[in-house]
């Protein structure tokens, strides 16, 4: 392929998911990254993915989504299936919110749910493991094990808790989400730490942390832009694709306090504006929670 010389250096390509030929069970695998220009300005279209987030314990999930998906929220497998087939998501991000409850010890369920959701879907899977540093090691091991060979995108590594997720990713052949708190330097530092632990650069996806629209989103937007610019200028430690998950978006006041009739519309608008802006800033994968946002985003990427 020929690229014009005025474009920047390339974003590293990261492969997600494994087809049977690649040693997994997915019907498709995705390659993200590879861009050489600012978003929506390059010679060829970006490889952009919209992920729908689901969880294994809906108590820790935004009410507006719970109300919308109804019973699905109690069945991660069905929820994941609907995400792909009904809502049109490119992939699913499974959040183990169950680990948020006090005294969590249902480690077996982690592996089981991972396998269940994999069985229900045909596309690559993002798994968001533990929310509690003390559970990290065991949770990531179970997630990793449950998805062995499927080249999951496993999250989340942070600067002071990256060793266990890195270990699970290395042991079971997954890619890693490296999350840092809205700072280009911290993002770079974490990538360096992961590489120094042995995680190859083409198995890292940067999550620069996305604040909700109206609640610090502009910081995330600019940090994503800066990461992308640094990468195009040749900073190999930042040349990974980015994932954006504006997870707080549906709990902002504007959505929580919207009149019931407008609540879905407000939730979708809020998520849509945040998520689409994240794409414009350079994200390769954007994760949203309201099913209707998925459809809106897929359309938005076509104009």
């Amino acid at each position: 392929m020929t690229e014009s010389s005025d474009e920047g250096l390339a974003i590293r390509e990261v492969r997600l998911g494994a087809t049977r030929a690649e040693g997994g069970t997915r019907e498709v695998s995705y390659v993200i990254g590879g861009e050489r220009a600012l978003p929506f300005s390059g010679k060829r279209p970006e490889r952009l993915l919209v992920a729908l987030e689901i969880c294994d314990d809906p108590r820790f999930w935004p009410p507006v989504v719970r109300d919308y998906v109804g019973d699905l929220s109690n069945d991660p497998g069905e929820w994941a299936r609907a995400a792909e087939r009904t809502y049109g998501a490119d992939l699913v991000r499974l959040n183990f919110t169950s680990t948020k409850q006090r005294g969590f010890d249902a480690f077996d369920a982690i592996a089981a749910t991972t396998e269940e959701v994999l069985a229900a879907t045909t596309r690559p899977l993002i798994v968001e493991g533990s929310n509690e540093p003390e559970l990290d090691s065991e949770v990531f091991r179970r997630c990793g094990e449950g998805g062995e060979g499927e080249r999951l995108l496993l999250g989340t590594a942070e600067a002071d808790r990256y060793r266990s997720v890195a270990a699970a990713a290395l042991a079971y052949g997954h890619a890693v989400i490296a999350q840092s708190p809205i700072d280009v330097n911290l993002a770079k530092q974490l990538n360096i730490l992961l590489c120094e632990t042995g995680v190859p650069q083409d198995r890292i996806v940067i999550d620069p942390y996305t604040g909700a629209l109206g609640y610090g989103f502009e910081y995330s937007y600019s940090v994503m832009e800066r990461i992308r610019l640094a990468a195009l200028a040749g900073d190999a430690d930042l040349a990974m694709p980015m994932i954006s998950a504006p997870t707080d978006t549906l709990s902002v006041r504007e959505v929580r306090e919207a009149v019931p009739a407008d609540q879905d519309a407000m939730a979708v608008a809020w998520e849509f504006y945040t998520a689409y802006s994240a794409f414009v800033a350079g994200a390769s994968i954007v994760c949203v929670r309201h099913p209707r946002t998925v459809e809106r985003l897929k359309k938005a990427l076509e104009v």
Binding site: D183, V184, N185, L186, K188, Q189, I192
Partner: peptide, 13 residues
């Protein structure tokens, strides 16, 4: 702030 954060690493980011 940027420079400080990038210096919060050994020896530097």
């Amino acid at each position: 702030m940027d420079r400080y954060t990038s210096s919060c690493f050994l020896p530097h980011t």
